[in-house]
């Protein structure tokens, strides 16, 4: 399925292997098999995990230093649980790649990035209707919002900077 990040489309270097048995340099395993995949990981493979948006982020915290990617499922664009999970994983110190996987719409791209996602794994049908230019344009449509702690900049800190510069 097409994969995109803030720079545009990118190749997917990960191999889905639910039970972790595939012989590939980067494998994406289901959460239920994560423990086994990590313990049997003598071959220097990189491990990522796919999770449902019903998984408590606490359950993943013990593994965060050992995995390179977390792919959070978005069963529909209207189900915003993944945004909160991403936020919690970043707070817990996860430094790897966060992937949103599901039928998101371009207008959610900015939100996903602000919550800590790096990339979107989009079903073919959505990608066919919403070309990558739409995503990049949508991500830039609102230049600044009001929440601190989401993304690199926000209006409150910009006001503060303006105050400090002006006085």
């Amino acid at each position: 399925m097409p994969l995109l990040d803030r720079n545009g489309l990118k190749p997917d270097e990960w191999t889905i292997s639910e039970d972790g048995t595939a012989d590939a340099p980067r494998i994406l395993v289901a959460f239920d098999h994560l423990k086994d995949a990590l313990s049997g990981n003598g071959r220097g493979r990189r491990i990522g995990v796919t999770i449902a948006n019903t998984l408590k982020s606490d359950a993943l915290v013990p593994y965060l230093n050992d995995i390179d990617l977390v792919s959070i499922a978005f069963p529909s664009y209207g189900d915003g649980r993944g945004f909160s999970i991403a936020k919690q994983l970043r707070r817990a110190g996860f430094k790897g790649t966060l992937r949103a996987s599901g039928p998101l719409i371009a207008d959610q791209f900015a939100y996903a990035l602000a919550c800590g996602f790096d990339e979107i794994d989009l079903p073919q049908a959505q990608a066919a209707r919403q070309p990558v230019e739409h995503w990049l344009k949508a991500a830039a449509s609102i230049s600044n919002t009001y929440q601190r702690g989401f993304g690199e900049q926000n209006i409150l800190d910009a006001r503060r900077a303006a105050r400090l510069a002006g006085k």
Binding site: F83, S84, C115, T145, Q147
Partner: peptide, 13 residues
């Protein structure tokens, strides 16, 4: 009002 406008995490409740 400002904080809740376009909150990235809470727009798909």
């Amino acid at each position: 009002r400002q904080w809740s406008s376009f909150h990235p995490e809470f727009d798909y409740l």
